[in-house]
Amino acid sequence: MALLEVKNLQVNYGVIRAIKGISFEVNEGEIVSLIGANGAGKTTTMQSIMGLIPIKDGTVTYDGKVINKIPGHKLISMGMSQVPEGRRVFQELTVYENLVMGAYTQKDKKKIKEDIEEICTRFPRLGERKNQIAGTLSGGEQQMLAMGRAMMSHPKLLMLDEPSMGLSPLLVDQVFDIIKDYHKMGTTVLLVEQNAKKALSISDRAYVLETGDITISGKGEDLLNNEQVKKAYLGE
């Protein structure tokens, strides 16, 4: 059964229809990518799933429940978590405090401490900078922090919006390695990326989003070899 199922999703910005009725699903244990160019509606899709922007029409089902009407903050304790576009770490809080914020829905204080330790081991840079103000971190470090923070709530479904944006190739590789790690640990992943090549290479399945419509979908490796995708998104 699909963990996340989006059916005929429509989102408007004023009178402009940004998402024109798309449907896709993410099955438990999968890595699924939404790829597409700037302005295709990837971030809009991600934000509307979490209730950050209102849905015009369609249904979003998570774990068998329709979640359109559920306030976004309740979705976190239901096991959804999102790393937003642009990271959006709390600039004025320290690395440690950011991670504690990520555990807002968690009650067990001892477990929170252990989780933070675990993240500091996984991201040694964050460990070294535990008491540093997050706004002073580099872009790569902020991305690591945003990912660590999103994992503090122990999500079943981790959604990442453009995690490689603005990062050097080396850091992009690191980010994707971490996504694979989290996936191996049993987290289902929905990934939105402009870096189509990277995204497709780790994805079970992928959807191509073009100006608010899904135009192509299929297995990650198939899309990597799809002529249309190659031409438009892989620069080959």
Binding site: G51, K74, E92
Partner: peptide
């Protein structure tokens, strides 16, 4: 306090605060 920290988070970024599970 937890609520106090949530207030700091909301004042900085409502959207990100909501993604932490905070009822803004």
């Amino acid at each position: 306090t937890r609520t106090g920290r949530a207030m700091v988070a909301v004042s900085e970024d409502k959207g990100a605060a909501m993604l932490m599970g905070i009822n803004v």
